[in-house]
């Protein structure tokens, strides 16, 4: 009885937070952002001017990795993507439903740190969602910072 009570919640929690979907290439933010101190906007440059922050293209990664660590198995995988002209199918971790139109540009412009929503990415070997990105989070931050909470800024 007691074991059942212990196991079941764990299973539930595991199914919600755990069972992390895997990425095709084991890219580590901890290595790139923390150890090598590469700025977020260097790779995710879209955030500077567009609603979409974007994920760097294969060509962009190869910009460094043509020379850097070329014999590592993950880099070899990357090279193969470039050679075969195959895009890397990353698994989306940070998701919003279809009816939410989040715009990175005004947030970056105002100086909102990436970590506010994406969590301490620079400590993550594998990207995960640290907290729930639900509407409550958005509206409470907007209210605190006296920014518009008009429905139309996100829902169109």
């Amino acid at each position: 009885m007691r074991t059942a009570v212990l196991i079941v919640p764990w299973l539930a929690a595991a199914s919600f937070l755990g069972a992390q979907p895997s990425q095709p290439i084991a890219f580590s933010h901890k290595l790139h952002a923390s150890q090598y101190k590469i700025e977020c906007l260097y790779c995710h440059s879209g955030a500077r001017r567009s609603p979409v922050a974007g994920i760097p293209s294969v060509q962009f990664c190869m910009g460094c990795h043509r020379q850097v660590n070329t014999t590592r198995p993950e880099i070899i995988k990357l090279r193969q993507h470039l050679d075969r002209n195959l895009p890397v199918a990353w698994t989306k971790i940070v998701k919003q439903p279809d009816f939410v139109f989040f715009n990175h540009y005004p947030h970056v412009r105002k100086g909102v740190r990436c970590q506010e929503c994406h969590g301490p990415i620079e400590t993550m070997t594998e990207v995960r969602l640290d907290h729930n990105l639900n509407m409550d989070r958005c509206t409470s931050c907007h209210r605190q910072n006296k920014v518009s909470i008009d429905c139309y800024i996100c829902h169109r």
């Binding site: 974007g54 293209s57 470039l82 195959l86 895009p87 890397v88 199918a89 990353w90 698994t91």
Partner: peptide, 12 residues
């Protein structure tokens, strides 16, 4: 849980 979505940036 739903099926994982993919994000595919450009190659070039």
């Amino acid at each position: 849980k739903t099926a994982p979505e993919r994000l595919e940036p450009y190659v070039v």
